[in-house]
Design a protein around this nucleic acid. Structure first.
Length: 276
DNA sequence: TTTCCATTTCCTGATT
DNA sequence: GAATCAGGAAATGGAA
């Protein structure tokens, strides 16, 4: 990949958001969310809606909760509202899973001090709107679009060049780390579709009921996926190869004759409206 | 340590 | 010609 190409990618991404990144590659979002992992640095009552959503995601991963059994729309609340929910409210909102969520939240409220409010930013978490910026908006913490990646390499840097992806030194510069969220590529794509406010304008539904969707910014999505996997050399070409492997497993179905268009298959879960 | 799985990387050729 | 699609082959890294 050339530096010119990288510039194009940067502009694709940064017309959608900007990042607050630190020298160690982490990204910090107001309210205590680190780009590396959910850290729960802040008291739950100060969480934004987005942080509540992230917490739910983590709970699903940690406790192996099926996304289809978690009515996320019942948790479209901020931390204050979440903390005001009773045990019965949790049971009502999430069924049996509500027990786990309720106790997990209670534990967090007892153990987590709020320590990041002034450390990285000047805005109180509860004042923050976690919706993503419009293209021309400079948004100081817009990494909320997807908080699980690190910053882009500098334009034209060696790590952004395709020539450094030869097998002799594949990803030698990357920090290997376990991904506790365990998300697969198709789940990553699904989540972008289900929560477009996180990453607006990257992928859109063509036919919501049929599960047909289209990439609007293919390389930007690939960059995001690469960040999720700590792989700065990810491209749409590679991402699409992984997508094509899903055809055999019936997680995706082919959509003939249409570029950048895919369709969820019978083995893809959690994308239907009644499942979310 | 081995095996398995889910990618990732590279490649060639076809299509748009 | 560039971008994308299709799919083979081999490599990689995390998890069990």
């Amino acid at each position: 990949m050339t530096s010119a190409t990288t510039s194009t990618l940067d502009s694709q991404l940064f017309t959608t958001w900007s990042l607050n990144s630190y020298s160690d590659g982490s990204v910090v979002v107001p309210g205590g969310y680190s780009g590396r992992l959910w850290t729960g640095e802040c008291q739950p009552q100060f969480w934004s809606k987005y942080q509540v959503w992230e917490w739910l995601q983590q709970m699903m991963d940690v406790y192996q909760i099926d996304a289809t059994s978690m009515p996320l729309h019942n948790f479209d609340v901020d931390g204050g509202q979440l903390c005001s929910m009773s045990y019965q409210d949790f049971l009502h909102a999430a069924g049996n899973v509500g027990t786990v969520l309720y106790h997990s939240l209670a534990e967090l409220r007892l153990t987590e001090p709020c320590q990041s409010e002034s450390a990285h930013h000047d805005v109180k978490p509860t004042e923050f709107d976690f919706s993503c910026p419009y293209p021309d908006t400079v948004y100081p913490s817009a990494d909320v679009c997807d908080t699980s990646f690190t910053s882009l390499p500098p334009v034209g840097s060696p790590s952004s060049s395709r020539t450094d992806t030869k097998k002799s030194h594949i990803r030698t510069d990357q920090v290997k780390k376990h991904n506790p969220r365990g998300s697969h590529l198709w789940e990553f794509i699904r989540d972008i579709l289900l929560y477009p406010e996180r990453n607006p304008g990257l992928i859109k539904w063509e036919d919501r009921t049929e599960g047909v969707f289209r990439f609007l910014k293919s390389e930007a999505v690939a960059q995001l996926w690469g960040r999720r996997k700590n792989n700065s050399s990810m491209t749409y070409e590679k991402l699409s190869r992984a997508m094509r492997y899903y055809y055999k497993r019936e997680i995706l179905e082919r959509v003939d004759g249409r570029r950048l268009v895919y369709k969820f298959g019978r083995n893809a879960r959690g994308w239907r409206e009644q499942e979310t």
